[in-house]
Nucleic acid binder design. Structure first.
Length: 205
DNA sequence: GGGACGATGTCCT
DNA sequence: GGACATCGTCCCC
């Protein structure tokens, strides 16, 4: 990251809860460029979010919330700004942030990829990869930031061990949408958003 | 109770 | 491009 940009960030302050109290898809798009901040024993790490997917509620067949609130996705029916973390394929953790308008019963955004901006060397202790690959894809992202199931239900607005803070979009960066990755239902919905051309995006649209 | 199946990543050919 | 690791959840028998 450029020093100029770093100077503009006076403090890593979590984004307020109201940011997430809007239509899931709208929040998803605006999450691009924001910072996912991780603090472990006074070590600071942050990635700039480059790829996300919106998952809605009872009307989205691809969503874990599709079958109702009595399953693993019950967090998605709760208050906004909290993390929904689940184990994928028995191997990888994936992290979502709950976001929905007051009209929506459920909704969350899967954070798929990020670009390391702070603490890359520390991240490598958890996942030793080059910068473009270390947080590319939902499983790699959680591995590089040492996020596991204990963060399911964690408040991402508290500003403690894990939170989201204001970031930036670089000049000329464009946001594009595409269909979501790895799903077998509702494959027509273009609810994946990414920063075009960024090397950390997991699968080019 | 049991089996199929993932919002994936890696390694092999 | 394909096999497979690996386990929680869900759905059906």
């Amino acid at each position: 990251m450029h020093l100029k940009t770093l100077r503009n960030i006076t403090k890593f302050k979590p984004i307020e809860r109201n940011f997430y109290l809007r239509e899931t898809i709208e929040v998803a798009e605006e999450l691009l460029g924001q910072l996912l901040v991780r603090v472990i024993d006074k070590n600071l790490m942050a990635v700039r979010i480059t790829e996300v997917e919106a998952y809605r509620g009872l009307l989205d067949p691809a969503s874990h919330a599709y079958r109702g609130k009595e399953g693993r996705a019950r967090i998605m029916f709760g208050d906004v700004g909290y993390a929904y973390v689940y184990l994928s394929y028995g191997v990888h953790y994936c992290i979502n942030v709950v976001a929905k308008s007051e009209d929506q019963e459920a909704g969350a955004i899967l954070i798929r990829s990020g670009e390391p901006v702070i603490g890359y060397q520390f991240m490598k202790l958890f996942h030793d990869r080059e910068k473009c690959k270390i947080s590319s894809g939902p499983g790699n992202l959680t591995k590089s930031l040492n996020i596991n199931a204990s963060y399911n239900g964690y408040d991402l607005t508290a500003g403690t061990e894990l939170y989201i803070s204001r970031g930036w979009l670089n000049k000329g960066e464009k946001i594009v949408s595409s269909t979501r990755v790895g799903i077998s239902r509702a494959t027509d919905k273009k609810w994946r958003f990414l920063i075009a051309g960024n090397c950390t995006v997991s699968k080019k649209p």
